[in-house]
Amino acid sequence: MAKNKTLKKGERGHLSDLKIGQRAKVIDLHNDNAALRRRILDMGITKGVVVEVLKAAPLGDPVDIALRGYELCIRKSEMANIDIEVL
């Protein structure tokens, strides 16, 4: 994931592809674990929500993102299941 080139504005990808400071709109989310998907929805990651990557943990994972006026920590493996479009 880290090796990927930076996604440009308007390009689509996964939330885990974003670099720190980038903002994106969530397009879809899929997860094999239904309970986990539900949890992610409940935490406000729904279609159309705008998220910003704020910082990563010192070891690179998990990542701290801002959405809906608060900060959420989430692992990259979960972020890989969230489709986004870069803003």
Binding site: N33, L36, R39, I40, M43, P62, D64, Y70, E71, L72, C73, I74, R75, S77, E78
Partner: peptide, 10 residues
């Protein structure tokens, strides 16, 4: 178990 996850507010 299944691989776990970490979702928490800061």
């Amino acid at each position: 178990g299944s691989p776990s996850n970490f979702i928490s507010e800061l």
